[in-house]
Design a protein around this nucleic acid. Structure first.
Length: 578
DNA sequence: GCCGTTTTCGGCCCGACTGTTTTCAGTCG
């Protein structure tokens, strides 16, 4: 069993333990361990063989034993025992809003509910409403949740709801009653997919602001409305929460609702060490704890971190992945910003499947203030995308030479998004590739190879001196297509050895390579290139999402080659060929 | 079940809202 499968298994154990009503901290331990396995830098098999599992943060004796069994035998009696207590279908019930382990267990024990379909039946025939602790209203809400689940998956790509979030933000900002307003939550942390949008407002008129929010034209229905918190469902299916607080509470609320949950837990325990209790409103004296330091004065989020002995942690880093240690030591990186980009690669034109001509793409890049732009249309094997053959590609090279002769203030680089064929060979021969300024190598076919074969395929492609950068490493399409099986640490290793750049594909559908792997890549010495994969002039706007990934991956402008000015980028593109 | 610059045992973040209740459990973030 590989690391991903073991992680899934630990998650399953966590859910089963929750159903059993186990100690919540034990459940959390399994969830934490599962997460620790997500981006293991070492091969799990090696860790098991060398009995070094317990070195991993979050894995202790008991879980190490279970993981060892899973890796070596693929089986675990403990899990089989748990599975025997509940039917498999019960898992889908956890996807419903308002249904947790306790209610699911109640429904299962009393009425035999083990699927969404059965839940629907017992809600409609009235038997669910008869259970202790449940009533008519609960049954109605379960039915609503079932409808809602069918309507949308409950998750949204960041790029798809960003404009909506900005619009709502602007609307709230124009209210005279609103003193301050911000989007918090996973949107502020720039997570690739978000489940809801959180707005935090500072106001002296909470009632008016809440009233405005729940009656906003985009609202479909009101889920909850209280004195300080309102939740609504928008017409496009996304849930939006509003928190209204007083001005002096605003930094605390913003911090708390930005999360992540794991980050918050750590923040609060750091406060407790000083004898303070931290909530979404303020610091207060913690009961039953010695007060080690007087309560601090707080005006801003920076002050909250400062009073805990930490440097300010940018929202993108708040995932409890080492930011606390770095903030305490003062070694947090200065994160890259959109304004640092000087150019970009991997753009398409009407020559393949783009919607804008080469001149239109160049014009758009100039308007953005870029110094250079790389054109990388598809290669001939991508027939579906009207990929270029050798002849058309070399014609495009000539066109780009002519463009550069016009001296517009933008330097174009000629490249290709060259298909990596099933066996790892490239779609163009060396003599053609050598005529280009750079090459993006990507997989667009045979997604279902084994992990070993896919990994070898990518590594073989990277071994070519002409492959400048690896495009969308895993081929995933967020919320629609799973990544193909590939050993990412091995690919990172090969990129470091061969001096191949790895792309952050900034398309909101891809955001690939994922932010979770970048700290490891950076440590190995791999350099990053942020590319929009633009198929139209509007596609350049996606660069901001790529920047979000880079920031979440702890990258600085030095880690990303397309922050380099024109005078220095050519040497980077040519480096592998020398 | 994990973890330790107070601890190898006893902690482990904290509050809002809902629904079913007369004081609170469950869920969510």
């Amino acid at each position: 069993m590989n690391a991903a499968a073991v992680g899934d298994t630990l998650e399953e154990i966590a859910i089963l333990l929750e159903l059993k009503g186990e100690n919540p901290f034990k459940i959390r331990a399994y969830t934490r361990a599962a997460r620790a396995l997500e981006t293991l830098s070492e091969d799990l098999g090696t860790l098991v063989a060398e009995k070094r599992l317990e070195e991993v943060d979050g894995i202790g004796k008991a879980i190490a034993e279970k993981v060892t069994l899973l890796v070596t035998t693929g089986k675990l009696e403990y899990l089989d025992g748990l599975r025997g207590e509940f039917p498999a279908g019960i898992f889908e019930l956890f996807e419903l809003q308002g249904l947790g382990a306790k209610k699911i267990k109640l429904l299962y024990d009393k009425l035999g509910v083990d699927s969404v379909a059965k839940l629907k039946a017992v809600c409609e025939d009235g038997s669910a409403g008869q259970l202790p602790g449940l009533g008519e209203k609960s049954a109605t809400n379960f039915l609503k949740a079932i409808v809602q689940r069918e309507k949308c998956a409950g998750q949204f790509r960041l790029g798809d709801i960003s404009a909506l979030a900005d619009g709502m933000l602007d609307d709230l900002r124009t209210l005279p009653e609103v003193d301050q307003v911000q989007v918090a939550g996973s949107h502020r942390r720039r997570k690739e997919v978000v489940g809801d949008l959180d707005f935090i407002v500072a106001t002296r008129h909470p009632k008016e602001v809440s009233e405005y929010f729940v009656s906003h034209p985009l609202v479909d229905s009101i889920l909850a409305q209280g004195a300080t918190k309102s939740s609504v469902l928008l017409k496009n299916g996304i849930q939006c929460d509003l928190r209204v607080v007083k001005a002096d509470e605003f930094p605390f609320a913003l911090n708390y609702f930005t999360g992540s949950k794991e980050h918050n837990v750590k923040m609060r325990s750091l406060a407790l060490e000083r004898g303070w209790s931290l909530n979404e409103y303020r610091f207060s004296v913690a009961e039953g704890r010695p007060l080690r330091e007087p309560l601090p004065e707080v005006q801003t989020e920076e002050d909250i971190y400062g009073s805990l002995g930490l440097a300010y942690v940018e929202p993108e880093l708040r995932e409890d992945r080492g930011e606390f240690a770095a903030a305490a030591e003062g070694t947090l990186p200065k994160l890259i910003e959109l304004a640092n980009l000087r150019g970009t690669f991997h753009c398409h034109t009407t020559a393949s499947d783009g919607r804008a001509t080469l001149d239109e793409m160049a014009e758009a890049a100039l308007e953005l203030g870029l110094q250079y732009l790389g054109i990388a249309d598809h290669s001939k094997s991508s027939v579906q995308a009207h990929g270029l053959d050798e002849k058309r590609l070399l014609e495009q090279v000539k066109t780009i030479e002519e463009y550069n002769a016009r001296d517009t203030g933008l330097r174009l680089f000629s490249g290709t998004e060259c298909d990596i064929k099933k066996d790892g060979s490239l779609d163009f021969p060396e003599e053609v590739l050598s005529r280009l300024d750079y090459v993006v190598a990507s997989v667009h076919s045979a997604f279902t190879l084994s992990e070993t074969a896919m990994t070898e395929r990518l590594i073989k492609a990277m071994s070519s001196p002409h492959v400048t950068m690896l495009g969308h490493l895993t081929g995933r399409l967020l919320l629609s297509r799973e990544p193909y099986q590939v050993n990412i640490p091995a690919v990172i290793e090969a990129a470091a050895e061969t001096g191949t750049l790895i792309e952050i594909n900034a398309s909101p559908y891809r955001l690939d390579m994922d932010w979770r792997w970048w700290p490891q890549a950076k440590e190995k010495g791999v350099r990053c290139v942020i590319n929009p994969d633009a198929h139209s002039t509007r596609g350049f706007q996606d660069l901001v999402f790529g920047i979000g990934v880079a920031r979440k991956g702890w990258l600085t402008r030095e880690d990303v080659v397309n922050t380099l000015p024109l005078g220095k980028i050519e040497a980077v593109l040519a480096a592998k060929r020398h």
